[in-house]
Computed example of a mutant assay.
Amino acid sequence: MTSALELALVRGFSALTVDEVARSANASKTTLMRFFGGRRGLIEATLALEMELVVGPLEESSADLVRFGAAFQQIIFSERCLGLLRFVLHESATDAGLGEAFRGTVLAGVRTMIGPAVSEALGLPLDDPDVVSASERYLGDLVGVELLRALSGDRPDAARLEVLRGRAVRQLG
């Protein structure tokens, strides 16, 4: 999977072929097809791996909204994550499957990770639809317009990020 991830980040998911990944991984195309079911499955598994590598460390801070917010901002504004976001934004314009896979893997994964803390903060059961929308709002509040600045090459300002963290937590309470 790391072969597919590195190839995708360099060449783009739209140019990624199962044959190319098989060669890079020293595996057969048949083996990859058996495990992933085709190009779409390979893309989803690649995004899941990136999720694990980039976002996985957030799990240990997911019970504390303030600590999670700081860790999330550190990761989302890292060069690797910004590069992946730029890539997904660009490629999903021509590959709808990539956007779908990203939303289903990365966004859903982060939302699920923070759901219990949001549920507790709101005093609502985890399966309440308001918890899902509040989780998404919280994540959006953490990045605010700073994400647009960062995607366009500007370095995020630590003081503005701290303000966003405080606002995101207050919005829940």
Rank of each mutant, 00 (worst) to 15 (best):
Q73C: 03
A117V: 07
A134D: 09
E79M: 02
A27V: 15
M113P: 09
G99Q: 02
A108Q: 12
A108S: 06
L89P: 03
A63H: 08
F87T: 02
G115M: 07
F68C: 05
R137A: 06
T31G: 08
G144N: 10
S28E: 13
I76S: 01
E136G: 14
G37T: 02
T94Y: 00
L164N: 12
E44V: 10
S78G: 04
P129H: 09
L49G: 08
L82M: 05
E162P: 09
D141E: 07
L9D: 00
A168S: 06
L139I: 12
L32R: 06
V21Y: 02
R167E: 15
G83L: 05
F102P: 00
R67D: 06
D154C: 06
E162F: 06
T112D: 15
V10P: 00
D19G: 14
T105I: 09
L126D: 07
I114E: 00
E52F: 05
V163T: 10
A71V: 09
V118L: 13
I76G: 00
G41T: 13
D141N: 15
L16Y: 03
E60V: 14
L147Q: 04
I75S: 03
G109S: 06
Y138C: 01
E44Q: 10
L65N: 10
Q74A: 13
V21H: 01
L85W: 03
S135G: 12
A4I: 01
G109F: 07
D127A: 15
M1R: 01
V143A: 09
R137I: 04
L5E: 13
G97P: 00
V163L: 15
S62L: 05
G56M: 11
R165G: 11
L98C: 06
D128Q: 07
P57R: 02
E79P: 15
V110N: 05
A71M: 13
